[in-house]
Design a protein around this nucleic acid. Sequence first.
DNA 1: TATTGTTATACTCTATAACTATA
DNA 2: TATAGTTATAGAGTATAACAATA
Lengths: 146, 146
Amino acid sequence: MATSETMPSSGQVLETLLRTTHQLHLQFESHLSALQVPEYLSGPRLRFLVSVAEAGQIRMSEIAAKLGIKPRTVTQFVDALEQEKLIVRLPDPDDRRATFIRLSETAPPLMQQARLAMSESADKVLASLSPEERGQLLLLLQQLSE
Amino acid sequence: MATSETMPSSGQVLETLLRTTHQLHLQFESHLSALQVPEYLSGPRLRFLVSVAEAGQIRMSEIAAKLGIKPRTVTQFVDALEQEKLIVRLPDPDDRRATFIRLSETAPPLMQQARLAMSESADKVLASLSPEERGQLLLLLQQLSE
DNA sequence: TATTGTTATACTCTATAACTATA
DNA sequence: TATAGTTATAGAGTATAACAATA
């Protein structure tokens, strides 16, 4: 039987995980807003854009499934990001009910800038971990998300 | 010079951290809502209640500072949780501008129930990690939040 | 003058339900 | 009849600004 230090309860781990990431999230957003990143590039929007960028071109229903959000929510992201000229809607010629989305031409440099600011913020937020510990953390997280 | 596997960039780690915990958060909330926990005990509200419970009795301005939220937001939490009979407001006799809050008598059993459900959900969410890995993760998170 | 908490208001993210156009 | 996306609406969590009561 192991001690509680080597075998903490799931509840304790998850509680710490959610609490800690909430703190990091707040720190991260406050660093970001101090930098030159446009405010409308919030966390969820950036996550959305990254998904679109990875796919190149993707149907709205697909990205909803991929991100675990509802079609209605996709419509709102697309509306907001289209207004900011970051993505464009394209009709699907094979299915006239469906709509593809992809990054606009102005999006990549902005996202690049956002990534830089994110990485700068991340350096501050993760300052208390050594490079090796960051590697460990990354592996554990990747295992969790599979 | 280490490889990128042992020394990932901060940006990559934080990106994975935020993305992964977003997924976990969604999974966790969906497990929770499938259980018998009252819906009004959402993550942020539970976090708020736990803070109040730890303090025993705390001023609204203090809890705002502790949780990193604005006084206006505290007022909303208190309004909602007071309506659910989970906390009570008490005047501060020494400063008539200030208000103390503390748990009501009915709160602790409900919170206990919520913790149990949370731990059940957590088991599912963390199923892909061994007990040792959970221990590692916990240590890394604790280090991060210091 | 400064601080505590509140009212008024608004924005983002998320959801459900009802609908339109198409398949 | 089923699917893709939209309109309409709502609710939680967060914020800023203006204000009243008190210090």
